[in-house]
C-alpha cells in the first residue's frame, strides 16, 4: 500500500501541495481527479521522487521513499510502471524497441525471451502490427497504448497513469479506460490514475479522490463520490464554470 502523509510543496513561495493525505490500496484502482494546475502531476513527481517535498512522507509498504538512498530508490522504481502524460516514448526508437528497453536495461533475458515478452505486451494493448513504427508515425491513442505496454513490460506492482486520456477522442479514451480496468483485473496491479476526465474516473475507479487547492477534499467509492456535498466536487461533477473552483 502507498500512504501519502501530510505532503507539502511550494515553488517560489507558491504553495502547490498543502498537506496531501491519501491511501492507495493494493490491487485496486485509485483515481485522483482535479482541475488543471491543482498539483496532480506534482504529486506524481513526488511519488517517483523526481521532486522532493518540503515536508511529509510517502510510505510504500511501510518504508518512507523520501528518505531512501539512490540505490534503494532504484529498487522501488522497478516496482513502478509509469505512463507519462505525453507518453514519453523514446522517439529515436520503434514501438518494439521502446517496450524492450526496460528489459534490456534491467534483465538478463535472452533476445528471444525479450522479443516474446515484448510481443505479448504489444498484443495486450492492441498494437500488433505497429511494433516496427516510430513514435512519430503513431496516433495519440497508439502512443498511449505503446507507453502502457512499456510501463507493463517489467511486470510492475504499481502502475501510475498521468492523465491517460488527455487529448484523446471519447472512443479512444474509453478504449484506454478499458485497458486500465483489464490490467487491474488480469494482473492484480495497483493502479494510480491522475485525471480530469470525470466520466472515465467514475468508470475505472475503486476509489475516487478529488484534489483541489493543494489538498484532497473528498474521497470515496464512485457511488459515494457522486453523492458528495463538497462544493468543489459538485462543481466538477456538474462541469460548471461557476463555483468555488476558479480557473486562471
Amino acid at each position: 500500500m502507498i500512504k501519502i502523509v501530510d505532503l507539502y510543496k511550494s515553488f517560489n513561495g507558491q504553495q502547490v501541495l498543502k498537506g496531501i493525505n491519501i491511501d492507495i490500496e493494493n490491487g485496486r484502482t485509485t483515481v485522483i481527479i482535479g482541475p488543471s494546475g491543482c498539483g496532480k502531476s506534482v504529486l506524481i513527481k513526488h511519488l517517483l521522487r523526481l521532486m522532493l517535498p518540503d515536508a511529509g512522507a510517502i510510505y510504500l509498504d511501510g518504508e518512507d521513499i523520501i528518505k531512501l538512498d539512490t540505490n534503494s530508490m532504484n529498487r522501488v522504481l522497478k516496482k513502478f510502471g509509469v505512463l507519462f502524460q505525453s507518453g514519453a516514448l523514446f522517439d529515436s526508437m520503434t514501438v518494439e524497441e521502446n517496450v524492450a528497453f526496460p528489459l534490456h536495461e534491467h534483465t538478463k533475458l535472452s533476445d528471444r525471451e525479450i522479443k516474446e515478452k515484448v510481443m505479448e505486451n504489444i498484443h495486450l494493448v492492441g498494437l500488433t502490427g505497429a511494433e516496427k513504427k516510430y513514435t512519430s508515425e503513431l496516433s495519440g491513442g497508439m502512443k498511449k497504448r505503446a507507453a502502457i505496454a512499456r510501463a507493463m513490460v517489467m511486470s510492475p506492482n504499481i502502475l501510475i497513469f498521468d492523465e491517460p486520456t488527455t487529448g484523446l477522442d471519447p472512443v479512444t479514451s474509453d478504449t484506454i479506460d478499458n485497458l486500465i480496468i483489464e490490467v487491474n483485473r488480469r494482473f492484480d496491479i495497483t493502479n494510480l490514475v491522475i485525471s480530469h476526465d470525470i466520466a472515465g474516473a467514475l468508470k475505472i475507479a475503486s476509489k475516487v479522490a478529488m484534489m483541489y487547492d493543494g489538498r484532497i477534499v473528498e474521497e470515496g467509492a464512485p457511488e459515494e463520490f457522486r453523492k458528495s456535498r463538497n462544493p468543489a466536487v459538485r462543481q466538477f461533477l456538474a462541469r460548471k464554470a461557476e463555483g468555488v473552483i476558479k480557473i486562471g
Binding site: 513527481k45 513502478f80 509509469v82 507519462f84 523514446f90 536495461e105
Partner: peptide, 8 residues
Amino acid sequence: DALYAMAI
C-alpha cells in the same frame, strides 16, 4: 523523467 522512472 521516463528514464528516471525506469531506474536509469
